[in-house]
Amino acid sequence: MNLFKTKFDAATIVLIPACIGINYLGKMFASLLKLPLWLDSIGTCIGGCLGGPVIGAICGAANNLIYGFTAGDNITLIYALTSLCIGVAVGIMSRLGFMKSFPKAILTAVVAGLVAVVISTPLNVVFWGGTTGNVWGDMVFAATQAAGMPVLLGSLLDEIVVDVPDKIITLIIVFFVLKGLPQKLTALYDANAKVERLD
């Protein structure tokens, strides 16, 4: 099985904007309800699970680039790389069967969370001197700096505190969304589907 096999037809192309819209919605809800989470990668993860790692990557990267370039939120621009990697990671995990049951989905969530941490931390350090812009995470960062720990370590902790719980909640939502989708929809994204002849 080729993990990265991808269909680039109208079905997957239309899926991507829908996923980006879902990202936006999640983010809006999180900020409206003042949750200490981002919830801005629900769509990216759905895209990765349905369309595979490449579609996941496009969902993630396009999400940040579009909002960065056109909605004036250019802080998200530099995290396009993080979103891209989350999409790839979730896509691969899903193709390996790690979205089939609830416990496996949690494992996927942890992987996605760690990927986010590994990619975001250097970006945080380079662009913001280590902060993430999330109140809870930045309190952790401030504490580590006051305690004299290195910036990289502090920023890493900052990210872990924010990203891992965030991805767990996100993937739980994704798991239930996927469970509810009708097969006549998910069949459209099957990269290996062939037309069978009846005569």
């Binding site: 109208a10 192309i13 919605l25 629900i42 969304v177 929809l185």
Partner: peptide, 26 residues
Amino acid sequence: LISPVVMSSLINTRERAVALEVRGFA
């Protein structure tokens, strides 16, 4: 509140994709 919009936006992609196909998107 959030579940219908997420589900219907995904389900609508099926018809939207058909709409693109019939208008020569490929």
